[in-house]
């Protein structure tokens, strides 16, 4: 029985690997050739899609195409104008509403302010905080304090 040296076995393994690589490279080249029309390799259910899929099956007549595009353009322009008109109407109506609301607000606040002023005029405001402040009272003569206290106590006892 022939004994296989480790060197020979490694050379054989290398040759096998080389052959497999070449085979693989060939396959890849073939696939590339096939998918030349589809450089990004877009697939549909496992099949690589070719260029003709992206193109229209029927060639459209240029004149017809122009006519259609013109018609479409006209329609689109009409739609655009209509939407612009509707937008303008909406804008005006909202402006009108806002203006009315603003006017009403001003009216209400003016009425409230006038009422407050009237009430303020009718009320007798007593600034007790200033008049009966301890430090202020302290500086007053005792006779005045006596009068004030007796008046207050008179009011308190009568209550």
């Amino acid at each position: 029985m022939q004994k296989i040296s480790p060197l020979r076995s490694s050379i054989e393994a290398f040759n096998k690997f080389k052959a497999a690589r070449l085979n693989k490279a060939d396959k890849a080249q073939k696939t590339n050739q096939q998918s030349q029309t589809n450089p990004f390799g877009i697939t549909f259910k496992g099949t690589v899609i070719q260029m003709d899929v992206f193109e229209k099956a029927e060639k459209v007549n240029e004149n017809t195409q122009k006519a259609i595009s013109l018609k479409e353009k006209m329609q689109n322009t009409g739609k655009l104008l209509a939407s612009a008109w509707v937008g303008t109407i909406n804008k005006f109506s909202s402006l009108k509403t806002n203006a009315i609301a603003f006017g009403n607000k001003i009216k209400d606040s003016t009425i409230a302010a006038a009422k407050k002023i009237r009430d303020f005029g009718n009320t007798k405001v007593e600034f007790d905080v200033f008049k009966y402040n301890v430090s202020r009272l302290q500086n007053k003569p005792v006779s005045e304090l006596r009068t004030m206290l007796s008046n207050e106590l008179q009011g308190v006892t009568n209550e």
Binding site: D128, Y132, N133, V134, L137, Q138, K140, P141, V142, S143, L145, R146, M148, L149, S150, E152, L153, G155, V156
Partner: peptide, 27 residues
Amino acid sequence: NNKRVKNIIEALGKHKDEESIEVLNEL
């Protein structure tokens, strides 16, 4: 009106004039 009376009494208590004692005693 407790606040007014309280303030007047307090002011008389802090007053330097001796007469304030008589006012407090009297009233």
